[in-house]
Simulated assay, not measured.
Amino acid sequence: MKIIDSHVHLVQYIAGTGSGGELRSIGNGDAIYASGEIVPQMIPPMFGGEQVTPEQILAIMDENEVEKAVLLQGNYYGFQNIYTHEAVKRYPDRFAGAASYDPYSRNKDKICKHLFEELGFGIVKFEVSTGSGLMSNHHTLPLDGELMEEAYSYADDKGLVFVIDIGKCGSESWQVEALRRAILNHPNMKFVVCHLLAVSTKDVDKLKWGLELLKLPNVWFDLAALPHICGPDAYPYENARRSVQIGKEIVGADRMMFGTDIPSVLKKDTYKNYVNFLMESDVLTEQEKQMVFYDTANKVFF
Rank of each mutant, 00 (worst) to 15 (best):
Lys2Ala: 14
Lys2Leu: 11
Asp5Lys: 04
Ser6Gln: 00
Val8Cys: 12
Gln12Met: 08
Tyr13Lys: 12
Ile14Thr: 01
Gly16Asp: 09
Gly16Tyr: 07
Gly21Lys: 15
Arg24Gln: 14
Asp30Phe: 12
Ala31Arg: 04
Ile32Leu: 14
Ile38Lys: 11
Met42Trp: 09
Pro44Met: 09
Pro44Asp: 14
Met46Glu: 11
Met46Gly: 02
Met46Val: 15
Phe47Ile: 03
Phe47Met: 05
Phe47Gly: 03
Gln56Leu: 08
Glu63Asp: 13
Asn64Ala: 07
Gly74Cys: 07
Tyr77Met: 14
Ala87Arg: 04
Tyr91Asn: 11
Asp93Thr: 03
Ala99Asp: 00
Tyr101Val: 00
Asp102Ser: 14
Asn107Met: 10
Asp109His: 15
Glu117Ala: 00
Phe121Gln: 00
Ile123Trp: 00
Val124Tyr: 02
Lys125Leu: 01
Phe126Cys: 02
Gly133Phe: 01
Asn137Ala: 03
His138Glu: 09
Pro142Met: 11
Asp144Lys: 12
Met148Ile: 08
Glu149Gly: 10
Glu149Ile: 13
Ala151Phe: 04
Asp157Tyr: 00
Val161Phe: 01
Phe162Ala: 03
Ile164Asp: 04
Gly167Ile: 07
Lys168Trp: 03
Gly170Lys: 08
Ser173Ile: 02
Val176Gln: 05
Glu177Gly: 09
Ala182Ile: 14
Ile183Ser: 00
Ile183Gln: 03
His186Arg: 06
Met189Phe: 01
Val192Tyr: 08
Val192Ser: 00
Ala198Arg: 09
Ala198Glu: 07
Ala198Ile: 10
Lys202Phe: 14
Lys208Thr: 09
Gly210Thr: 10
Leu211Asp: 04
Glu212Tyr: 04
Glu212Gly: 12
Pro217Ser: 10
Asn218Ala: 06
Asp222Trp: 01
Leu223His: 01
Leu226Gly: 04
Ile229Asp: 14
Gly231Leu: 10
Pro232Leu: 11
Pro232Asp: 04
Tyr235Val: 05
Tyr237Lys: 02
Asn239Glu: 12
Arg241Thr: 11
Arg241Ile: 05
Glu249Met: 14
Val251Asp: 06
Gly252Asn: 10
Asp254Met: 02
Gly259Val: 12
Pro263Leu: 00
Lys268Cys: 09
Asp269Trp: 10
Thr270Glu: 06
Tyr271Leu: 09
Lys272Val: 03
Phe277Ile: 01
Met279Leu: 13
Glu286Pro: 15
Lys289Gln: 11
Met291Tyr: 02
Tyr294Ser: 06
Asp295Gly: 12
Ala297Glu: 07
Val300His: 02
Phe301Asn: 00
Phe301Gln: 03
